[in-house]
Design a binder for these strands. Sequence first.
DNA 1: GAGATGATTTACTGGAGAGTATATTGCATT
DNA 2: AATGCAATATACTCTCCAGTAAATCATCTC
Lengths: 203, 203
Amino acid sequence: MPVSPFPDDAQRQASREAKRKAVLLAAVRMFNARGFHATSLDDVAASLGISKPTIYHYLGTKDQVLLECVTFGLHQLLEAAETARRQPGTGLARLRTFLISYARVNMEDFGRCVIRTGEEMLSPESAERFRDLKREIDAALRALIREAVADGSMVPVDERIAAFTFAGALNWPARWFDPDGPESAQATAEHMVDLLIAGCTPR
Amino acid sequence: MPVSPFPDDAQRQASREAKRKAVLLAAVRMFNARGFHATSLDDVAASLGISKPTIYHYLGTKDQVLLECVTFGLHQLLEAAETARRQPGTGLARLRTFLISYARVNMEDFGRCVIRTGEEMLSPESAERFRDLKREIDAALRALIREAVADGSMVPVDERIAAFTFAGALNWPARWFDPDGPESAQATAEHMVDLLIAGCTPR
DNA sequence: GAGATGATTTACTGGAGAGTATATTGCATT
DNA sequence: AATGCAATATACTCTCCAGTAAATCATCTC
């Protein structure tokens, strides 16, 4: 099915979205590789063979670019939480499912960016939106823990401490995981999660 | 015992050291509070009522200031490892002792800075020294895990994964722990560590 | 074909802040 | 007194880069 060289509105829209996404991906990869402050928008533009004002055309200021990156990553995590929530099985099994997805997202481009981005890098307004989204993830994680304890599949724990401990352990791969390392992302994620919940099974 | 207003060499040396340390502490606190890139040396100097060249006099470039900060924090961690190593008791008990100290250091000024500092913030040479020291900590942690498994006080685990998991979980408080929060630093550290090693006791 | 609209560029401005040259003061040694 | 070193300041330079103004080119619409 050949595409007409005269795009209609939908194609136009799709092309715009594709470009937007390409810029975002180039930016997030560079931010992860060299750090946000060590990356100029000129660098990002050059890596795509375009010029800086084009980035402004599609995404806006550097602050907005970063906010888009972390928002995307945080949406991936939120989605993982919702998917796990709908899963059948015990509360602990659902928690495990979520934690594995959580770890995996943090090994990918946008998740890594979420972890490596400190609030002080964003404008006060963007930092607030960033914080709000992170709070949602935290709430989802705590809810899954609470439900696992409630249905007896998990030993009683302090919800706050457990959430921070699990999240911290599974955030860290954003800093050290190497896809060319000894274990695959999936295997590494399962391995870590099983170590974390080993002490949480009753009896 | 009144001190003569004419300092001898030792006093002179001590005063110099005290000033060096004061600058370092002011810097690390500001780096933690506002981020490294959002903190200028002029800011640090102003907070001490001095001027930027004085910082250069005592510590050198901004890169060197940051390297000193993280080196100090990493030495605290290394010391904690050595102390735990000399402790009596089972391998798991020694590991637990170390992990608690590790968590506590990461809640203090210099430890927090270690966690919040990415390699891309340092010059290539400083980043290499940073990496080397972090590798030493990792080696110490793995050794403690290995010994705990060897003497049977800890269930067999993948040393690499366990080290990353524990370290990640206990690094994270650098980002969220609040000394004015519901639990003291010590209690929080113990709480997290006990959750982490709950699954590691045999049987 | 005459504008309106979108995509993209070149070329600039403005500000921040790292690092330095140079001056000043003062004690310390001879 | 003369010289030298330690401590500190003022005032500058130089670079980098975010953000913008204005121009160009290409379509689509009427």
